[in-house]
Design a protein around this nucleic acid. Sequence first.
DNA 1: TCGTAAAGTTAGCGCCTCTAACATATGTTA
DNA 2: TAACATATGTTAGAGGCGCTAACTTTACGA
Lengths: 225, 225
Amino acid sequence: MTWIMKETLEKHTSKLEEHAPDPIVKSGYHHGDLRAGLIEATRRLVEERGQHGFSVSDACRLAGVSTAAPYKHFKDKNEMIVATVLEGMTRHRSNMLESIKEIPEGSPMRIKALGREYINFALKEPGIFRLKFGGFTDKLEDDRLQSYGEDTFGFVLQEVAKCIGETEINQDVRDRGFMLWSFVHGLSFLLYDKRLSDMGGGFDLDNMLSETAKMVLSTEKKRNL
Amino acid sequence: MTWIMKETLEKHTSKLEEHAPDPIVKSGYHHGDLRAGLIEATRRLVEERGQHGFSVSDACRLAGVSTAAPYKHFKDKNEMIVATVLEGMTRHRSNMLESIKEIPEGSPMRIKALGREYINFALKEPGIFRLKFGGFTDKLEDDRLQSYGEDTFGFVLQEVAKCIGETEINQDVRDRGFMLWSFVHGLSFLLYDKRLSDMGGGFDLDNMLSETAKMVLSTEKKRNL
DNA sequence: TCGTAAAGTTAGCGCCTCTAACATATGTTA
DNA sequence: TAACATATGTTAGAGGCGCTAACTTTACGA
């Protein structure tokens, strides 16, 4: 991170910087790492104003460069978003891996912890989460994003297999893994949309996750499930 | 429906109409029902090109009116989208109600059928579904949308209560309902994103839904769940 | 039938994405 | 170390979009 903060912005001053806590601007003619700077600016904007309160121009103002500068680093707006989402997914995955470090292998609590961390991210960084899964997906069919997601799911399947004592990823493992993923994925959207309100006072997310993990992982193998 | 199709469009001809199977254009100076025409145009565009392949201008071209016309009917673009989503949700709900007509009350198969229809809609009209749940939600906090969703969830909770022999909507009913909704909601996203591929050859959605409904509705009440 | 309101139109402002042409640093090689 | 090639900035501007203002056409009820 070689960007420095500039006290006075002669040309690029705007309403934006007044509210942005920590503008990422360049020092001289060159920026240092504009690519990373734009990704960070995009991330902030998406979180602060939602998926659509974002424009390339806004990101440029935040980064303190002209509106043509990004096109030296990204093909177009879409690629800028892909890069930002990819950065978020990288953190998302490493958070998940971190969260199970101390939980013994084969325990459903590992699955529970992974789900909990999945939801944590969705609630902490709803902008990025929705950018990945909710909206732009049609256009965002970037190979890197696709395979990144598949890798992560593959990891979860291995965890599921260990929990139910299977040595290979068979259909039963895939079904259970997909059920759990669907459940947690749906929760990630609905908890945010409903803002954790009208869930009733007795709502306990951690308990629900634990019970669901145990339930899905403990039922005997169904005929065709 | 009073719109007529025009064979020749002198002014508003564009690439758009070449591909649109069924343009909704006006006959004379007035349109007949431009509000409905724009909603229909928006719906088509969103389905054909995804959430973001849509603009007010595009909808105008499809409807055969000038780009200023919509503002006699909608405050802004957002209101146009809200109206389109609301129209979709109305159909969504009536599909769901229709799907359980012949299934006996109190049967988990009613819950299964509701879930199946929920997913059907998400797969048949992914544009509208994502418009409602995936992307614009921040902006779409329209009271009508909000309360419409809550009404539908309330209905599902009543069904859940009947299935587990409760007479009132208590926390246990809410938890089970929310679990089922989350599961089905997550499935709706993931099935579309993954295009039903790499689910494994033995994947059987209907069976998974049935088994999940039975599982969630049959487990005894948990201490704190 | 006639006047008013509803529902169209054109013109245009400001913002956005993205390109072309030009300017300035950086860093490798003679 | 000078000089050139390349990377990374800049300004100018085309074309599209959202939306408004001011004007025009049509429909309909007194």
